[in-house]
């Protein structure tokens, strides 16, 4: 007798525990989210309107844990509010799911059916939430390169780099480079009007040779003189056509004798003829080149400029 009454009590308890909750928690309405246009991180709200009898509350332990399931969706939050406008015991439960799956191409994802448990004391009731599907798309390439950070991370304000100092440094180096380039062009005689003044360039190159007195330096100096004459004439000037050169360039007429002597010395230097006096070092040639340089400069300025005395040209 005692044994049978214990079994009856256990059965009653089990019956009470597993008693159907339909009478106490009833699903009235489901408001589904839109089923398209989702991307990684978007939230998917599912709103349930339930008729919940007094004393019943959602069983927090029965809610899906983060990381469970297929990990496509995770429950971000559950909000509850009374909805007396719908029925006397109505409550609106909003399950806010977050899309956690990144896709490489548009894809339809299916959320498995969920159970929502309610508890009142030891009694348990379950509401079944059917499965549903949404379509998702991959994250798009950022729309604007000017706002990369906010396009991949909306709302984020990037701190701008301080570019003034590097810009100033770069500007300084640039100015220094341009000055060096100009100095090099000036030294090489390739700056502006210098290009049209071959004797000025020849004078500079011979001036650099004046410290030397060897035969090679003298040959270089003569080559500079010949190069300037050739460039001025637009053809090769030899000793034989020097009078033609002077005739076409009368600005150098008063230097014709010096030029003739220099050409004779050059022939002796290069072709093994008997040595000629007068031009036996670059320094001697420098005086002639200075005179030619000054006449060249005056000629470039035009005929209105009177020729200056050149006794101290060098």
């Amino acid at each position: 007798m005692k044994r049978s009454s214990a079994s009856a009590l256990l059965s009653l308890l089990l019956f009470a525990c597993s008693a159907p909750a339909a009478a106490t928690v009833a699903l009235k309405q489901i408001e589904w989210p839109r089923n398209f246009g989702y991307r990684l991180g978007d939230t998917v709200p599912v709103t349930l309107t339930l008729d919940v009898a007094a004393g019943w509350a959602p069983d927090r332990d029965g809610l899906p844990e983060p990381g469970q399931g297929d990990r496509q969706f995770e429950l971000r939050q559950l909000t509850v509010r009374d909805a007396p406008e719908r029925c006397g015991n109505c409550r609106v439960y909003t399950l806010e799911w977050q899309l956690m799956k990144s896709v490489r191409a548009p894809q339809t994802l299916r959320m498995a059916p969920q159970s929502l448990r309610f508890r009142k004391d030891n009694a348990v009731a379950e509401i079944k939430v059917p499965a549903f599907e949404i379509s998702t798309a991959p994250l798009l390439h950022w729309a604007s390169k000017k706002d990369i950070v906010s396009s991949v991370h909306p709302g984020y304000l990037a701190t701008e780099f301080d570019t003034r100092a590097p810009l100033l440094r770069a500007l300084g180096w640039g100015v220094a480079g341009v000055l060096l380039l100009l100095a090099g062009l000036w030294a090489g005689g390739r700056l502006g009007g210098q290009r049209a003044r071959p004797f000025a360039r020849a004078w500079r190159s011979v001036r650099a040779l004046c410290a030397r007195s060897d035969a090679d330096a003298l040959q270089q100096a003569f080559r500079a003189l010949h190069g300037a004459c050739n460039e001025t004439a637009g053809a090769t000037v030899f000793a034989s056509n020097l009078p033609d050169f002077i005739a076409h360039n009368p600005a150098f007429a008063d230097q014709s004798e010096a030029l003739r002597t220099a050409f004779a010395a050059s022939r002796a230097c290069f072709y093994g003829l008997p040595p000629q006096g007068g031009y036996d070092s670059p320094a001697a040639l420098l005086r002639l080149l200075a005179a030619l340089r000054d006449r060249e400069k005056l000629r470039a300025k035009g005929p209105s400029v009177r020729q200056a005395p050149l006794s101290r040209a060098a």
């Binding site: 003569f222 010949h226 050739n230 090769t236 230097c269």
Partner: peptide, 8 residues
């Protein structure tokens, strides 16, 4: 040719 080829 004689005009353009240079020599000291």
């Amino acid at each position: 040719v004689l005009r353009q080829v240079a020599s000291p």
